[in-house]
Write a protein that binds this DNA or RNA. Sequence first.
DNA 1: CTACATATTTGATATAAATCAAGATGCCTC
DNA 2: GAGGCATCTTGATTTATATCAAATATGTAG
Lengths: 244, 244
Amino acid sequence: MRPEDIPVVRNLPLFADMDDRRFDELVKAALLQTFPPQVDLIREGDPADFLYVLVEGAVELYAGHNGRETTMAVIEPTSAFILAAVLNDAVFLMSARTFLPSRVMMIPNEHIRRCFAEDKAFAAAVVAELSQAYRQLVKQHKEIKLRLAAERLANYLLRQSQARGDPTHFKLPAGKGTIAALLGMTPENLSRAFGALSAYGVRVRGGSIHIDDAALLADFAKPTPLIDGVEEIYERRGVKSIGP
Amino acid sequence: MRPEDIPVVRNLPLFADMDDRRFDELVKAALLQTFPPQVDLIREGDPADFLYVLVEGAVELYAGHNGRETTMAVIEPTSAFILAAVLNDAVFLMSARTFLPSRVMMIPNEHIRRCFAEDKAFAAAVVAELSQAYRQLVKQHKEIKLRLAAERLANYLLRQSQARGDPTHFKLPAGKGTIAALLGMTPENLSRAFGALSAYGVRVRGGSIHIDDAALLADFAKPTPLIDGVEEIYERRGVKSIGP
DNA sequence: CTACATATTTGATATAAATCAAGATGCCTC
DNA sequence: GAGGCATCTTGATTTATATCAAATATGTAG
């Protein structure tokens, strides 16, 4: 484990309030591995032996069934993923692959579960993280059931433009194929949806998005905090998490 | 609060292992109310002041946006709902309405949060409940993204036939309109999907479903534990929860 | 039991999205 | 800067699903 990574992980909401000694134990038990792009980290159906923390790079959570495949989430540093599977001591429901060169910390399942049982602050952080992940997923599920493809894209673009610095200009965090799957459509359909949004001031140049007039786009997108809102229990120091 | 209801609630996984004194406090602080059918219990966007426990009857969780509405879950006794909103001290993301005459226990937010902070067994149960709810929702989300309407119905019927006693015959837990919304389709489309499944031995008579040959239906439905599996951390004494 | 209100089914049609098949574009390597 | 490969786009078509409009069934109050 590179020493400069430790404070970054330490500052994650999940670990920030935990006992010092216990955190050191976690770190000692953890593996830190570096992976090239397009490597499968976990496969749905496998037992959840480790909690994963993405320290650097980017990871896609995806799931397949019966010849089809879809993206469930795009993870950016620094954040933990597949926490629920570990706590439940169950199999993964999603697969994960890097799509950039990535550094990943892997903490053995039993350590997480022991910390949870013994460290009150950690337990509280786990609940906060879980309930937030749950609510995030409720929003995703509402979105896919209540919005058409072009509306999903429009709102996604608005959310991204808020989450990243400049509200008028940003880069997509993944290739368009992945974004399409995340938003529950085919790449072809995403292209056409972008075409439809040009009427509302959306300019696309490769992975670069420019939004001429957020109010005009919002007029079409009809965002609502009950689907598009970002919630933070903690102050999130240095944490970014990219949902759809 | 009717005395005969107390042991039922006490046996919920969420409360089963908690300290006796604390449970009594919870019950004392709680309200138990009876509602007729079609009454709104909570409305999305309102602050989550109470944790709800359905003691008797049936409740639908639903969400609306921009003129559309969809069913998120159908709750049967005895189970708690909207736990994540309470723990997060946030607004509800879903509305809830009774669709049978129902008895509902309402526990004030602060009591739940205090118990969580002070009672280790309760904290563990909360995490178990939350991580299970999260995984349940992951499965729902995978299903809607990876399966066509008729496949969703076929798998839903197989899950129901397993969850209820007799694998060849059962009653739908809600009207077909609600089931249709739960499965992400219109009532018309549900009708046609039932029509399509008659080729695989599904007989419908009102709300009664008869499955001639589960193997034949499964052949079409292609169920997988990674979407259709039921997970139980605890032995669930007397608990039933109906997901889609 | 009858009649009303509501829920469901059925048919015709419209819309949304997926698929198939070329092209075009961008990106990386050399 | 030129090839070569992958990604993305565009157009034509098919398929899935929604919508609209009756017709039929179902449950319920009287």
